[in-house]
Design a binder for these strands. Structure first.
Lengths: 245, 245
DNA sequence: GATGTTCGTTTGTTGGACAAGCGAATATTT
DNA sequence: AAATATTCGCTTGTCCAACAAACGAACATC
């Protein structure tokens, strides 16, 4: 007969109100928010209550602090949204197989699209990534961060904001998976080598604006990744490990 | 020569500290957090500072309030993470084309996977969704929410947590796109009808555990969606409109 | 022209305080 | 005895008042 009532604390209303101003365009990226005392006065609340609302906004990525100073409205960036999503997936004990399946859908088509749109600067950025990778490889250091960065670069070149946002949390989670893979004796030498070679092929395809080749090599690259995982007898259905830092 | 220094406010340290406890498993989903005064004592901070940290945690979805009472640790759910991501995409003025492209990668493979795993209860849920849709259709009401729900159902049946998280923000944004589409005279009648028919075909394929048919029909369904958009001479590269509520 | 001083502004932090909602225990009524 | 009312303690949400630290700007000094 009556609807469920749930009280909304004032600090949440503050957050929603400011968010609404932002989403409606009355506050745009770069604009400064009024100072806390002024907000408190406008809302008719204590400064502290307003501050709690601002913390909510801050964590949602809509506003940011500029070097300890006044809060400014921001466009949330996929790189800030991703960690939260990654955390959620870890807590839900996502498996390698799940991550791989989604990447298998997204990465090849990202490569294909990137092939159509890539320009010289972007080619240079990819080449640079590969060069650094070769250096680290020669020095016997880890290339995992560079690998994750490479794939993000390709996705950025593809120029699809939805794709970028969708794939980043997943991409980040390959970090621990790759670490595990390259720590295994069966893969610690050939694995990174094959990875760099695949990136070489992908870059070549992108350079020639060859959609099909880019897609194909990306697909092979992903399949190879999974095969390496299986070769080491890792369980594809086991939860991805927690990455400490 | 020296690294950049940036002061970290205490409330953020509080957030990070508690988050670390959660991610390390020392605090698991369902556990209650200590009360605010106790946290303040342990951290050696004022209660208010701790509260601000808790607001950050709250917005990140790691803790939640149970009916105004004590905070409990939660597993962030994709349905809570999605709105933030959707907002980010709207602010970045994501286009229909971008959303469609990603969905074109994700939805068909989700359907294929769902075909392998679907059980009777899930079939019933889909059938129920379609039945409701037919009702709304007959009553001349909007079927948009049911359409979005249908696709989310299929993704849930696919049983891939990473997929679910990746697609939901995008799926949500088709809401305004569909509204625009079905408001157009060219599509307000045939559009919803074709949509329901496609869902019928998809359900049939899923029922028979026919991966290929499910994938094919989902793909056709998506292509049809785009075609409808083009038919109405809508600009695929225009930013998706802001959805008020 | 570079460095130091002063000062107002704004945020981060603290302390103490109180009302309201909730759970549990206890008292009261029928 | 069962249902209802009262009381009480706990915890959160909110408020008020205050101060330290960082910053920007204007000004003074060397």
């Amino acid at each position: 007969m009556f609807q469920r009532i749930e009280a909304v604390p004032a600090y949440r209303i503050v957050c929603d109100a400011i968010e609404k101003q932002i989403m409606s365009g009355r506050l745009g990226a770069g604009d400064q928010l009024p100072i806390e005392t002024e907000l408190a006065e406008q809302f008719g609340l204590a400064r502290h209550t307003v501050r709690e609302g601002l913390r909510l906004l801050e964590e949602s990525g809509l506003v940011g602090r500029e070097a300890g100073r006044r809060l400014v409205v921001k466009e949330p960036h996929y790189a800030e949204l991703a960690p939260r999503a990654s955390r959620a997936l870890i807590m839900q004990r996502v498996t390698f197989e799940e991550l791989w399946e989604v990447s298998m859908s997204l990465e090849p088509s990202a490569a294909a699209r990137a092939a159509s749109r890539i320009d010289d600067d972007q080619i240079a950025a990819l080449e640079d990534n590969l060069r650094q990778m070769e250096e680290e490889l020669a020095a016997g250091r880890s290339i995992i961060a560079l690998d994750v960065a490479f794939h993000t670069l390709v996705a950025e070149i593809a120029g699809n904001k939805a794709l970028l946002l969708a794939r980043e949390p997943i991409s980040q989670l390959f970090y621990p998976a790759l670490e595990k893979l390259f720590a295994h004796p069966l893969n610690c030498v050939t694995g990174p080598r094959r990875l760099a070679d695949a990136h070489r092929h992908i870059i070549d395809a992108l350079k020639h604006h060859d959609r099909d080749a880019a897609e194909l090599w990306m697909r092979r690259h992903m399949v190879d990744f999974r095969r390496g995982y299986e070769l080491c007898s890792f369980d594809l259905r086991e939860a991805i490990a927690f990455e400490g830092a």
